[in-house]
Amino acid sequence: MRVVGDLKHGNLTTAQHPGPLGRDRAVVAIGFFDGVHRGHQLIIETARAQAREMGAVVRIVTFVEHPFRFFRPETEFRYLTTIDEKLAILEQHGVDIVHLVPFDVKIANTEAEDFCRDILARQMKAHVLVVGHDFALGKGRNGTIPVLASYGRELGFEVVEVGPVMSEEGLPISSTHIRGLIAEGDVTTAGKRMGHPYTLSGDVVAGDGRGRSLGFPTVNLRWPEMKLLPATGVYITRAFIGGATRASGEPHPAVTNVGYRPTFDGKTLSAETHILGEVPPHCEQARTMSLDFVQRLRAEQRFDSVDSICRQIRKDVELADEYFVQTGGWKQ
Rank of each mutant, 00 (worst) to 15 (best):
K139I: 01
G156R: 12
L155C: 10
P217A: 15
V160A: 11
M166I: 05
G211Q: 03
A149H: 08
E161I: 15
T189W: 01
S167P: 03
S150A: 12
T218I: 12
L181C: 00
D134K: 15
G209V: 05
I182M: 08
G209I: 14
V128S: 11
T144S: 15
G191N: 06
E161Y: 07
M194T: 04
G152H: 01
L148F: 05
A149N: 07
G180A: 13
V205G: 14
V130T: 12
A183T: 00
R212K: 15
F216R: 14
H127W: 10
V162Q: 06
K139E: 07
G143W: 03
D134C: 13
V130M: 05
E158Y: 14
L129G: 02
A136M: 05
V131T: 02
L200A: 01
G170H: 02
T144W: 06
I145T: 10
P197K: 04
E154D: 11
K139S: 05
V205S: 09
A206K: 14
V162F: 07
A190Y: 03
G143R: 02
T199K: 05
E168R: 09
I178P: 00
V130W: 03
G211N: 04
A190W: 02
S213W: 14
T189M: 05
H177D: 14
D186E: 11
E184N: 06
V204W: 12
A190Q: 04
Y198K: 10
F216I: 15
Y198R: 04
P164H: 11
H196S: 04
L200I: 12
V205Y: 08
L181F: 02
E154Q: 15
R141L: 11
E168C: 08
G156I: 09
Y198F: 12
D186R: 00
V128E: 14
G211W: 01
A206N: 13
V187L: 14
D208E: 13
A206T: 13
G180S: 12
N142G: 11
T144E: 07
R193N: 03
G195W: 00
G195K: 02
V130A: 13
G140F: 13
E161S: 08
V187Q: 01
G180C: 11
L148Y: 07
R210A: 08
G185N: 02
A183F: 01
R179S: 00
V128M: 11
T176L: 10
A126F: 06
V159Y: 06
V159H: 08
G191L: 05
G202R: 09
M194R: 09
S174N: 04
M194Q: 04
R210K: 14
S213L: 08
G185T: 07
V159E: 01
G138S: 02
G132K: 00
